[in-house]
């Protein structure tokens, strides 16, 4: 039982990290009013970039950095299309997912199936790692885990809700015309935070292939990008909720892994379905409950709506 708990918690933190990074990036983009459905493609691009970088001698941190840069670069293409040209966000997001997945698989052909040359390995924190359960599950993880689960969510929460800049960026997502009238540079903020969000997604891919799996193969993202998008809606577009949600999904994923490793009497295919079915349930159940009480965390009012100054 203790073993089971340790295994689930440890895997949940490791696996959920991908979702935290992706979801936090999506929170940034959606808070300025842009729906980025390209996360899945960005995950793949970040993942393959990190693998290629470490295969050519880079250390894992440089590999992660490369993934962030590539995520940001593709984010600029996406932002150019949806913020500058104001093209349809759903279409461009799908295009980014399809093109990104294809490009990543093409680029990663020579690296498929091999273990990553360099990884973010777990570090046992002296003293704390001796604790029962938590010692192995929490205090023996790779160092990125602490940044992902604690530093980044708190930093984004502070940015969004405790600074004037954060208020401006939320205003851009709620009412761009009012923000514009108040002197906030709507286009610039949208562009910047879409690119930042994409860089987060690139980092999620790099974390996936350098810390969680750690190797590259086709389809390795396995819908995690989409789960991250769903998570943001489930979390009411708030960074701390998104982090809690990612933990929950990490636990669901971990149950699948642990169940397979321990030969639970459930077909492995059913266990593998859990994260997807769980995500759908997490979208439907709160809405069902909220339908009765009328309590629902609303999306930014201008989410998905391009802003034209001349239509003010």
């Amino acid at each position: 039982m203790i073993d089971l708990l340790t295994g689930v918690l440890s895997t949940a933190l490791l696996a959920g990290g991908v979702l935290v990074l992706g979801a936090l990036g999506e929170v940034l983009a959606e808070r300025v009013g842009v729906f980025n459905l390209g996360l899945e493609g960005l995950f793949a691009l970040g993942g393959v970039t990190a693998i290629i970088a470490v295969a050519h001698g880079a250390n894992p941190l440089a590999g992660l950095l490369a993934a962030i840069v590539v995520g940001g670069a593709f984010g600029m293409v996406f932002a150019g299309a949806v913020v500058v040209l104001r093209a349809n966000q759903t279409l461009c997001g799908l295009a980014l997912t399809i093109a990104g997945s294809g490009l990543a698989s093409a680029a990663g052909r020579g690296y498929s199936g091999q273990p990553a040359r360099a990884v973010f390995a777990g570090v046992a924190i002296p003293g704390l790692s001796e604790l029962p359960v938590l010692g192995r599950a929490v205090f023996s993880q790779n160092p990125l885990v602490y940044v992902i689960w604690i530093v980044l969510p708190l930093a984004l929460h502070w940015l969004l809700y405790r600074t004037r800049h954060g208020m401006n960026l939320r205003a851009v997502g709620e009412n761009p015309a009012a923000a514009d009238a108040a002197g906030v540079k709507v286009g610039l903020l949208r562009f910047g935070y879409v690119v930042a969000g994409a860089a987060f997604a690139g980092a999620a891919g790099g974390y996936l292939t350098l810390a969680f799996v750690p190797s590259w193969s086709d389809g390795i993202t396995g819908g995690r990008g989409w789960i991250a998008v769903a998570l943001v809606i489930f979390a009411g577009f708030r960074p701390l909720n998104a982090t809690l949600g990612a933990f929950m999904f990490g636990v669901i994923t971990a149950l699948g892994f642990v169940g397979q490793a321990r030969n639970w009497p459930v077909p492995p295919a059913v266990l593998s379905m859990l994260p997807y079915l769980g995500t759908i349930a997490c979208m439907i159940v709160p809405a069902l409950l909220a339908g009765r009480t009328g309590q629902r965390l609303m999306a930014p009012a201008a989410l998905g709506v391009p802003y034209f100054r001349d239509e003010r």
């Binding site: 493609g41 293409v77 299309a81 040209l85 104001r86 093209a87 349809n88 279409l91 461009c92 799908l94 295009a95 980014l96 997912t97 399809i98 093109a99 990104g100 997945s101 294809g102 490009l103 698989s105 093409a106 052909r109 086709d218």
Partner: peptide, 23 residues
């Protein structure tokens, strides 16, 4: 040339279609 390059190309077609629609 693998299927993946072709998949990437279809993504590009979609992106350009979305942009062209606005232009």
């Amino acid at each position: 040339v693998s299927n993946y390059e072709v998949l990437a190309l279809t993504g590009l077609v979609l992106l350009f279609t979305a942009m062209g629609e606005r232009i």
